[in-house]
Design a protein around this nucleic acid. Structure first.
Length: 273
DNA sequence: CAAGACTCCTGTCAGC
DNA sequence: TGCTGACAGGAGTCTT
């Protein structure tokens, strides 16, 4: 499941498409998170990709006519192939974007991803404009989190997963960061101390940077035909380790459900205040 | 307005 | 072995 580090990695990996002209677009499945615009093929054809960048977990492909917005959702993948080596499309290969020499294939079994088009500045698109700060930007600091957290009555874990506050902190990294910062996931956000804000900011950045350094690999990386587990998986302290010993105190980790998300933590090391 | 529930979808895996 | 059902999860949208 692509989290921010993986999207970042993908974004770097597909840069060879920049300055390439799109010759052909094939859409096989329009029913994604939102319906793929029926005019997309026409819009993209014969345009040059000027820039590919990331905002949160959204990938933005800027062309001369507008911007293609792609989100990978849960199970989405983007693979870059040499045009002549593009494999025959399989069941969940929903879109191909083909240039002179390259082919970008979007695959998404669970179809939580999205492919949209905007002719406006993409940063003003309704899905993008309301996004919070980038976790690795300077803007995301103790003061920011402190201000945003005041008077909030929700629990800290769903709070840091809220993309209107800070983007890119998914379920895995939220659990990991809270463990690192020694904060109980059920702590009421408004009760978090300034020191805890600082610890949490540091922990989030540390966890994300480490994951990026691992190539953004997370779980079940089925890119790897060997079935080798993702590199970062070995770094996980709590996520997916329900009932296993805490790596710090050896006590058994607990799992609870918060905001419909499984949450593993150490009730001894992670305190409410 | 804020908080929480619901929803989309399919692969995987536990249990019978 | 095969079937059934639970589960996982990003994030927009609906409900309270």
């Amino acid at each position: 499941m692509p989290e921010l580090p993986e999207v970042e990695t993908i974004c770097s990996g597909i840069q060879p498409l920049v300055q390439q002209k799109i010759n052909q677009v094939i859409i096989r499945q329009y029913q994604l998170r939102f319906k793929v615009p029926s005019t997309l093929t026409t819009k993209l054809k014969n345009t040059e990709i000027k820039r590919i960048n990331r905002r949160g977990k959204y990938l933005l492909f800027t062309t001369s006519k507008g911007t293609l917005i792609v989100h990978l959702g849960m199970s989405g993948r983007l693979r870059l192939h040499k045009k002549l080596q593009l494999p025959t499309a399989e069941k969940h290969d929903h879109m191909d974007i083909i240039t002179d020499q390259l082919a970008l294939r979007f695959t998404d079994p669970r179809r939580f991803g999205l492919v949209l088009w905007t002719s406006q500045d993409p940063l003003t698109h309704r899905l993008i404009e309301s996004l919070g700060v980038e976790p690795l930007d300077q803007e995301f600091d103790t003061e920011y989190l402190w201000q945003k957290s005041r008077h909030k009555k929700i629990m800290i874990k769903p709070f840091i997963m809220n993309s209107k506050i800070v983007v890119g902190v998914g379920n895995i990294y939220a659990a990991e960061a809270l463990f690192t910062a020694k904060i109980h996931p059920q702590t009421i956000t408004g009760n978090i101390s300034r020191q805890q804000c600082q610890n949490l900011v540091t922990a989030i950045q540390q966890v994300l940077e480490k994951a990026i350094a691992c190539g953004g690999t997370t779980l079940n990386d089925f890119c790897d035909s060997q079935g080798t587990p993702g590199y970062f998986k070995q770094e996980l302290q709590v996520y997916g380790r329900d009932k296993e010993p805490c790596l710090s105190c050896k006590r058994s980790l607990k799992k609870i459900i918060l905001a419909q998300r499984s949450t593993v933590f150490c009730s001894h090391c992670q305190l409410m205040e």
